[in-house]
Write a protein that binds this DNA or RNA. Structure first.
Lengths: 200, 200
DNA sequence: CCAGTTGACATACCGAGGGTATGCATTCTA
DNA sequence: TAGAATGCATACCCTCGGTATGTCAACTGG
């Protein structure tokens, strides 16, 4: 019994995404050739262009997949924490740890904005981890843990801080840097807490 | 009297840098062709490859130039402020304003890390604005304005926060966002101040 | 069960663009 | 002033993204 068409399609798309992610992460977007991807899978460019409009579209699909996996780890860590404040800090720390993966870094943080454009990249982030950060910040404000203030500026400051910190930590050889960074991040966040408000 | 060789060289290099910066900023690194740059100057690719080892090298030279200009604005703002703490905040705000330029954004913040690699990009930043941020942070620690702590994690958190905020602000249509961002950044920095320490 | 259609690829080809090898004229230098 | 070095042009190659077209198997309605 030969595989059904829908199965075949799913298998091919999955293979292209997997191999694409491998090579994009290892060599960077610009240095990856479509021929190299399809050759590694025993396919041809015709197959790739049947499923994706072009190289950038394949890369975008890979980015979305990476974003979703990072967001999943963030959500899992946040949900395990009690109270909105602990959920925020736990989510931030989980994001830092998830972004330590070199594949995540190269694809999501370095090549992503340049290849897709910053606006598209931001929109993708807003659909995954960015949204959770925004909701977590709104929650701590609603709970009165930090002073009422516009969420958007704060969200972008924190998002950028964590992205850059993740990239730096990956190059750092001192294991204490992660703890120091988390500590510095916590002290920055602590700044926002309303006076006379403990953990919530 | 014909121009001397050293003059000719300087003029050509300067023209390549200027036109390169224009096109890199307008179209993005990947969409810029070397033929397009040299055609706009009435030159040929031979001239470009005589002065630069390749496309990436020209781009790197442009990035360095942009970095230096941003750093100059940061330094100017910082030097005009009294005391280490005010110098830090003034420098941060100047960086945000300087990074509002679309040319700076596209070249320095978006394409830079992807084209040059994050490590090279970081090294370039450390040679300009990054160094000043580190020194400013060290100064406020030495002056006892903020609690003693590792400078590197803090520097990367702040650097990333400002980079991302600058990109977001450029897309924002609400002029209050800049003020809100600066306010949020100030409140984050305030978190670090040692108790019982006014402006220094 | 079968003719016609759709879909999942493969093959062949094109053009753009980065990089290189080489030629040439002018300026420098001994 | 003759040879060397330099600034730049010309011609060429090759990789690679994208497209047009062909082909065979799987689906679908009668």
């Amino acid at each position: 019994m030969s595989p059904t068409k829908i199965e075949q399609r799913q298998a091919t798309v999955h293979a292209l995404l997997t191999e694409g992610r491998r090579q994009f992460a290892r060599d960077g977007y610009a240095a990856v050739s479509l021929a190299g991807i399809v050759d590694a899978l025993g396919l041809t460019k015709g197959a790739l262009y049947h499923h994706f409009p072009g190289k950038a579209a394949l890369f975008r699909a890979v980015v979305e997949q990476v974003q979703e996996q990072v967001a999943a780890r963030v959500v899992a860590a946040a949900e395990a924490a009690p109270g909105s404040w602990r959920q925020l800090t736990a989510g931030c720390e989980a994001f830092l740890r998830a972004s330590a993966d070199p594949e995540v870094q190269r694809i999501m943080l370095i090549d992503g904005p340049a290849v897709l454009g910053w606006d598209v990249w931001r929109a993708l982030d807003d659909a995954s981890s960015g949204r959770h950060l925004r909701e977590a910040l709104q929650a701590v404000i609603d709970d009165g843990v930090i002073a009422p203030q516009p969420v958007e500026p704060l969200m972008h400051l924190l998002s950028g801080a964590m992205n850059e910190a993740a990239l730096w930590l990956a190059r750092s050889d001192d294991p204490r840097d992660l703890d120091d960074t988390v500590a510095a991040l916590h002290s920055l966040l602590d700044a926002l807490r309303s006076p006379a408000n403990g953990a919530t």
